[in-house]
Amino acid sequence: MIEIRDLSIRFGPYRAVDGLDLTVAAGELFGFLGPNGAGKTTTIRALTGALSPSSGTIRVAGCDLPRQFRALKPKLGYIPDLDTHYEDLTGRENLRLYARLRGVDPDAVPAWLAKVELSEAADLRVKSYSRGMKKKLLIARELLHAPVALFLDEPTANLDRHSIGLVHGLLREQAAAGTTIFLTTHDMDEVDALCDRVALMRRGRLLALDTPARLVAAHAQRWCDLQVERDGRTERLSVRLEDADARAGAAALLREHAHVRIHTREPSFEQAFRELTREAAA
């Protein structure tokens, strides 16, 4: 569905994206991660036709970009990290506008409003919506026309736990229906919970590409957090369980002093992410 070959995007001497190779299958939920300045948004802008690559090729749904962008764009959905609504119009009017522009029956709008739990606020102007409501409206708007590829930038920022669950459900449903979902986020729990595969970028280059589980297994470590009483004071200590010496030291400490609390941390995707970006920086 998405094929990126040797993609480079330069702004003068600065290489925002440098030799990126990536393939995303149809119906895949793909996470595109990296610290600030890694080139994530630049790549998404190139995938949505807003930027032309300096070199390399991009193919989305069989269309070469930017050459065949006109043919591709009706099949795309893009949810940026800002609210691109007409705030003087109501939620319903915004959805009806985009439905008409995309050749979708506007009668489908009430069902979508219900799906993102905005039926009651449908006839209020968007300027009176909270940021979370605006985000849900945006997601409904970009799913109206059943895009073949959906690009999301921070899809669940500013959403409460309930709404995050709702959005995740919608995205899974879309992926199951064959839509390729390409998302960037800084929420590592979201990546772990949602993504089939993940690409990790740093300074425009691809650091890692795999499933979240394999990346965790390869790069995250188990830790044990200890609290012990020593000389009337509580001391805190974190021990890496893969390190035999550290394990032995912790055991000795527990034998000698009264422990208050022992807590083991299972490896998480966030740890794997930190480890990978730390290794790359070193």
Binding site: P74, R102, G103, V104, D105, A108, A111, W112, A114, K115, L143, L144, H145, A146, G165, L166, H168, G169, L170, R172, E173, Q174, A177
Partner: peptide, 14 residues
Amino acid sequence: MSRGLPTPQRPVLA
């Protein structure tokens, strides 16, 4: 969470 409705509509004609 998601109620499985409505089915997204692919535009029949641009």
